[in-house]
Design a protein around this nucleic acid. Structure first.
Lengths: 187, 187
DNA sequence: GTCTATAGATCGATAGAC
DNA sequence: GTCTATCGATCTATAGAC
């Protein structure tokens, strides 16, 4: 039983990996306890409302990471093309070149849907809108900007599904490369 | 407690809807019993190996439907363009214009991943290869055919994720229209 | 903060009547 | 084929010692 976790932030990261592997309903407290090395006492100390609160914290944590490392760069009024490049770099790194799934996407398709629909909806809306704004500022028409933003976010999520399904992470890197080609302003 | 189900085929369809709504681990036998109107006795009569067998039957059933209604048309050597059009029609109808998710995609991201990876892998491989073959026969180069086939399947899966996440089925219909435009031979 | 022990509900699965 | 009753395991959550 390792004890490398002493702060709530570390607990969130550890619990996130369990949810990523087994889904929400598939992650029992026993599984979480084993894989994180945190006892139930610790878990209920960090998350008094139990499993539901663990999932909320995990999803908020992912959203927060994207807000700081992806959406903020996209909104940078001065350098929209640079922001879009930064998004692709961050996404490639975050999803470990296709070996890691998107928890928000998995929860959207799976069990926790209605319980967490607020965070999920906000995450994808914010992403699409921030990217659309950046594309607009690189010279896209409003229609083309919205359409391309949706195409990129759709492509990233779909590539994560296919990479996992076919156990071939390269589907993800190929898709990212193809999506970049759809945005000539960042070539 | 309605009793409209007397055959295994009907039971599979009813159980599929439960898995679609709650995922694999999220669907308890109590939930399945309530939502299908089938008692445990009936369920274990149709599926002696229990929940695992229910999920296998459901996934096989979906795969079989796609084999007959989508992949077969794509493989029709005589009319590849017509087969691709047929695929888009069948996909739009099957996913209820974006209101229904793909069980194979949801299981790939969620809990049942390792338990059902065989069926999941086969489904997506077969789909991509059949579409690639059809594109080849409409005049695409081998490279372009493979790339576009992957783009289409990725786009469909991603659109289902986003449509569910944003609770906006039109993401799906918009994406299908956009993907069709990527294949000039069927315009 | 973290542990063990345990409550009380629910889990998947089975048995046997009809 | 479908029902009810029920088993033992596992579930989430809590209590209380340290």
């Amino acid at each position: 039983m390792p004890r490398e976790v002493a702060e709530r932030g570390d607990a969130i990261a550890a619990v996130a990996e369990v949810f990523r592997e087994h889904g929400y309903a598939g992650s029992s407290l026993a599984t979480i306890t084993q894989q994180t090395g945190l006892g139930k006492g610790s878990l209920y100390h960090f998350f008094p409302n139990g499993k539901q609160e663990m999932a909320e914290a995990v999803l908020e944590d992912v959203s927060h990471w994207f807000e700081e490392n992806v959406f903020a760069a996209l909104r940078d009024a001065g350098a929209p093309a640079r922001g879009i490049e930064r998004m692709f770099e961050a996404v490639e790194a975050y999803f470990h070149s296709g070996e890691r799934i998107c928890l928000l996407g998995a929860f959207a398709l799976g069990d926790g849907q209605e319980a967490f629909e607020g965070v999920i909806h906000r995450y994808f809306s914010t992403w699409t809108e921030a990217l659309s704004g950046a594309l607009l500022r690189t010279g896209f028409t409003p229609t083309k900007a919205e359409e391309t933003a949706e195409e990129v976010v759709v492509g990233i999520q779909g590539a994560l599904v296919l990479a996992r399904s076919r156990q071939d992470p390269q589907v993800f890197t190929r898709t990212l490369a193809r999506l970049k080609r759809r945005i000539p302003t960042i070539q």
